[in-house]
Amino acid sequence: MHFAAYLSLLPLLGTAVSAWDAPSYSGYRLVWADTFAGPSGQLPNENNWNILDGNLGVNNELQTYRRSARNVQTSGGNTLQVVPWKDGSSWTSGRVESKYTFTPQPGRRTMAEAQIRFGGNDIGTKQGIWPAFWLLGDSIRSGTPWPACGELDILETVNGQLTGYGTIHCGVYPGGVCNEPTGRGGTVSIPNQDWQRWRIVWDRTTGDWRSETITWFMNDSQFHQVRGDQINDQTVWTSLTAKPLFFILNVAVGGNWPGYPNDRTLGGYGAMMEVGYVAQYSS
């Protein structure tokens, strides 16, 4: 997530819940996926996910993440719902991190994607709500600091705005080749709060790290790309393209980027991020 650091219910009433298998794509084989099977109101599969519990103390965010089905639950319709709640003056929310890791392989294209929608609250009631689908370098779990571990934000959006952000964070903080803390990013207009597919593709088929690419897509349309020669530092580029990565799904509340909730901000299912599947592929 932008400026990120790292320290280590009930079904949606009145709204139809859709479900997908991870799709097939020509030229790719499915390597790993979670389609969030399970009854409503249960935690997601803990063989696949670490469910965070506590306040990470990052980005000046307000929420405390809870290992609670009130904040992160299977819907009963093969989706995951990550739900922020306001309880008095405090906020709780959900964050899950995959136990599965993957490394984009040389000579291949690697793809990661998820199907995501947002809760139906009016956009004017989402000040401070910050959902994200992203990746961190697994080396952070063994002591490599952020952003040297590498971070790839596949989707972020803030304050209910219908703008999606795709960003890399890498190298050193502040400054460096990734312009931290801002990172190197692109944006795309989101048509509505309903289901969209968010994807990132590593192309390592050229045999030269300088011409390798990382490309972002919404619904098959490209909206951002970074090449190795734009970073122009092989060690930094490797942290993004040739080291193990893990998935993160979360909804933060407040923080340096979105700012804080206001008197109109609502939590609950109408402010959630809902995920139909997470999948990783290789050519």
Rank of each mutant, 00 (worst) to 15 (best):
Q234V: 14
Q234P: 14
T235S: 15
T235D: 12
V236K: 07
V236C: 12
V236P: 09
W237E: 04
W237H: 07
W237G: 14
S239W: 03
S239P: 00
S239G: 07
S239K: 13
S239E: 09
L240S: 04
T241V: 15
A242L: 08
A242R: 12
A242Q: 06
F246I: 09
F246C: 08
I248H: 01
I248G: 10
I248K: 03
N250P: 02
V251A: 06
V251S: 10
V251I: 11
A252I: 01
V253R: 08
G254Y: 05
P258W: 04
P258Q: 09
G259N: 06
G259D: 11
P261K: 11
D263P: 00
R264P: 00
T265K: 05
L266H: 00
G267E: 04
G267T: 08
G268L: 05
G268S: 10
G268A: 09
Y269D: 13
G270A: 05
A271Q: 04
A271C: 03
M272N: 10
E274F: 04
V275I: 15
G276T: 06
G276W: 03
G276F: 03
G276Q: 05
Y277D: 09
V278I: 14
A279W: 08
A279S: 13
A279H: 06
A279Q: 04
Y281A: 13
Y281P: 14
